[in-house]
């Protein structure tokens, strides 16, 4: 039986992570930054689930610690987006722009 090896998942997750990180660094729109952050969180989730699927939990371990971690991450990501959109909206109302470069009144 030829299954997909673990490394493929890890390479995929790392690629997603790098794409997300590049998105955060390159994109200037706050909403796009938020999306890039989501990609990074999901890359970590892929990692977690792949590691869990390809390993035998020890006798002391919970058999589902990987999926639990992933489910909590999904929840946290949702909370983070809700808060992030709220903050972006608040800033947008004041400056009529979602461009993160506009927010430079505090510096020094």
């Amino acid at each position: 039986m030829h299954d997909i090896p673990l490394t493929w998942f890890l390479i995929f997750a790392s690629a997603c992570f790098v794409i997300g990180l590049l998105g955060v660094l390159v994109r200037r729109n706050a909403i796009a930054v938020l999306m890039a952050i989501e990609i990074m969180l999901n890359a970590a989730n892929i990692n977690i689930i792949a590691f869990w699927r390809y390993s035998v939990p020890g006798p002391e371990e919970s058999p589902v610690s990987g999926p639990m971690l992933a489910i909590f991450v999904i929840t946290i990501a949702a909370a983070e987006v809700a808060v992030g959109i709220g903050l972006i909206l608040l800033c947008y109302r004041r400056r009529a722009s979602a461009d993160v470069d506009q927010y430079d009144s505090l510096s020094g």
């Binding site: 990074m40 890359a43 970590a44 990692n47 590691f51 939990p57 020890g58 002391e60 371990e61 971690l69």
Partner: peptide, 14 residues
């Protein structure tokens, strides 16, 4: 979190 995921993979426990 990505660091945690790698650590989880390397150690197999949380």
């Amino acid at each position: 979190l990505f660091g945690l995921s790698l650590l989880y993979g390397l150690a197999g426990t949380t």
